[in-house]
Amino acid sequence: MMRCPEFRYFAPDTVEEVVKILAEEGPRASLLGGGTDLVPNMKRRQQTPAVLVATRRVKELHNVENDATSARLGSGITLARIAASPTLRPWSALVRAAAQVATPHIRNTGTLGGNLCVDTRCNYYDQSYEWRKAIDFCMKKDGGVCWVAPGSPRCWAVSSTDCAPALIALDAQVELVSKGQTRIVPVAQLYNDDGIEYLARRPDELIASVRLGDPTGWRSTYWKLRRREAFDFPVLSVAAAVKLEGDRVVEARVVFGAVASRPVVADVSALIGNRLDDASIERVADSASKLAKPLDNTDFTLGWRKRVAKAYVSGALKELRGDDLETLGLLARRQSMLRVLS
């Protein structure tokens, strides 16, 4: 049986107590939300925090406040709750992203905050201590080399959060609270392009909430590629959001997940002012998908993932213009299973 190492455990009742402990313990402490990412990593000794600070008792982290024009989601709410929430439907990309994380069981405990902070993944790293020892470890933990690119000075582990690309496409913000300080930053700014230091969150900061803006006029979606429709992390995802006036695009955002160490925002300015016709979609899909530069450290070959990146951007935009998913090919039909979940 795989088992956790030892740790000190705190389960405070308030945000103030949480950030006080974080301030005292520094990087030795890890926040424990649902534990669905942290616990396996602890069992494999990828992470061995001396202190766990559980957030489950902090009531304000479990609140959802929303009306038609904004939402404030506590970071401790479960992914299952987001997926099932009728009032969050206007922020469709987020609902779809949350509904496709891992499995129903994991969504029942996994939290929004946890998914935003989910450790970057790499199949040289997501292995047991003994396995990693057999390759003499890697840069991300206990070793010196990045085996994905042995000459590289940096770690290329892959951002594997489903919710972050969706939230970036929705232009959401996170509320970071530390002792005596609160800062609100766009979700995009939560991430660094580095497999190890992938979070711009300071160790003493808690993601208290996610803020969503006015969805009026916006349509959004999230397409996830994985081999199985359960369990698997994204190996490519596309979050897309467009704001239309009449049939013209006035604002648009397309974000890739799982193609780099952080979510990658594509330049889709070519869409602005245009109709979402096949030609403009293909043009944007072509240029945007060039940003997707996956490496050989997840499932599927990288060449194929690049090919799908283009199909995904094009499919997601066609869905947003109103095409029926059933007409958008087989990979679109995989997204449509979501109807069952919602």
């Binding site: 795989m2 389960a11 534990g35 994991i106 405990t109």
Partner: peptide
């Protein structure tokens, strides 16, 4: 009442 994975849930969290 909800199905969860007991291998990922610290017992301490089950108070």
């Amino acid at each position: 009442g909800r199905p969860v994975l007991s291998c990922l849930m610290l017992a301490l969290e089950c108070e």
